[in-house]
């Protein structure tokens, strides 16, 4: 019986890193947006936060696109 520990290990590692990374990116994006929300409420603006937020979401969207390409392939 041959158990493919390497494959299992890489599934574990990739899942862990990608999930945590994606969630972190996304949370940063959400943070940026809610900072802008607060700033707008106070009459100011938070250009940097919004730019950062959209950069984060773009990275997440790229990850989703990669996921779809994996499914289709």
């Amino acid at each position: 019986m041959k158990i493919d520990w390497a494959a299992l290990g890489s599934v574990f590692g990739v899942s862990l890193v990608v999930t945590v990374g994606l969630v972190a990116l996304f949370t940063l994006g959400v943070m940026g947006l809610s900072r802008q929300e607060r700033a707008t409420a106070q009459g100011g603006s938070a250009g940097l936060a919004v730019t950062g937020a959209y950069a984060c979401f773009a990275a997440c969207a790229a990850a989703v696109a990669y996921g779809i390409s994996l499914i289709v392939a």
Partner: peptide
């Protein structure tokens, strides 16, 4: 394990993320 760490991280990082946008 992945979901647990991600959840923990998102609560730590996102403490300031609230409101409609979040």
């Amino acid at each position: 394990v992945a979901a647990m760490l991600a959840t923990r991280l998102s609560y730590t990082l996102g403490r300031k993320a609230d409101g409609k946008a979040a």
